[in-house]
Computed example of a mutant assay.
Amino acid sequence: MPLSEYEQRVLEQLENDLGSDPKLGHAMARGQKSRAHLTWAVFGVVAGLGVVLAGAMTQITALGIAGFAVMLAAAIWGITGGNTASAAKKREPRASDAAGPAPKPTATKDGKGFMGRVEERFERRRDEGNL
C-alpha cells in the first residue's frame, strides 16, 4: 500500500531530523572491528576461562572470581571497543560539514526513488506469492 502524501512528508521530515542530530549519528556510527582486536578479545576470554577452571580445580575462590572478571572484561572489551572508525580518532571537519545537512539523494536513472523501488519489489513479491 503506497503512503499518502502526508505520510511521505512526515517520513521525509523524520529522516531529515535524524540526519541532522550529531549525537545520534555519533552513537549509531559503527565501524568494522579489527581482526587483531577480536583475536585479543577471544584470547582474553579463553585465558579467563582457564583461570576460572584452575580456581575451581584448586578450590581457590579468589582465583575463580579473578578469572571470571578477566573473562567478563575481555568480552566487554571485544564487544564495545576496537572499531576502526573509533571515536578516539578525531576526524578533521570537511567542507561539506560546514555547509549544513547533506543534500537528499535524487531519484535513480529510472526515475524512481527509494520508496518507489521498495513498493515495486513488494508488489512483485505479492504477485509471485512470496510474501
Rank of each mutant, 00 (worst) to 15 (best):
A56Q: 05
W40Y: 13
M1D: 10
N130C: 11
T58S: 08
G19F: 08
E128H: 10
A69K: 01
V118Y: 05
S20W: 03
K33Q: 13
L53E: 07
F114N: 04
T58A: 08
T39H: 13
L53I: 04
P105F: 03
M57C: 07
T106Y: 06
G64S: 09
A85N: 15
V45N: 02
P105Y: 01
A87H: 09
A69E: 05
Q59A: 09
M57I: 06
A36G: 14
A99R: 15
Q59L: 03
A95T: 11
F68M: 11
N83I: 01
L14I: 10
A69V: 07
A75H: 03
D127S: 09
G82E: 09
L3N: 15
A36C: 09
G48V: 03
L63V: 11
R91N: 14
R124C: 04
A69F: 07
A69Y: 00
A66V: 05
A29Q: 14
K89V: 05
F43E: 06
K109C: 04
T80R: 01
T61C: 07
I79M: 03
I65W: 05
E5Y: 00
N16P: 07
D127M: 11
P93I: 11
G50M: 13
R125K: 12
A88Q: 08
S34Y: 03
P2T: 14
G50R: 10
D21H: 09
A75D: 01
M115V: 11
K89M: 05
A102K: 10
G129Y: 04
M115G: 13
K104V: 02
G111R: 02
P93Q: 13
P22T: 00
Q32R: 15
R9Y: 08
Y6K: 13
L72T: 00
F43V: 07
V51T: 08
W77L: 02
G100W: 10
A87N: 07
G50W: 06
A95E: 13
K89Q: 07
P93A: 15
G64E: 01
E7P: 04
K109F: 11
V45T: 05
H37R: 10
G50K: 13
G44V: 07
A85H: 15
D127R: 15
M71L: 12
V51I: 14
R125H: 09
S4L: 10
Q8V: 03
L14N: 12
A88V: 01
A74R: 02
G100V: 07
K90D: 07
V42H: 13
L18V: 00
A47I: 02
G55Y: 08
G113D: 15
D110I: 05
V42Y: 14
G67Y: 00
L18G: 04
G113N: 15
G67N: 03
A56H: 02
I65F: 01
N16C: 15
W40G: 08
P105M: 01
V70C: 06
D21K: 00
A54F: 09
P101E: 12
G48L: 07
A74Q: 09
Q8H: 11
D97F: 12
R121I: 10
E92Y: 04
V70Y: 03
M1E: 10
T61V: 05
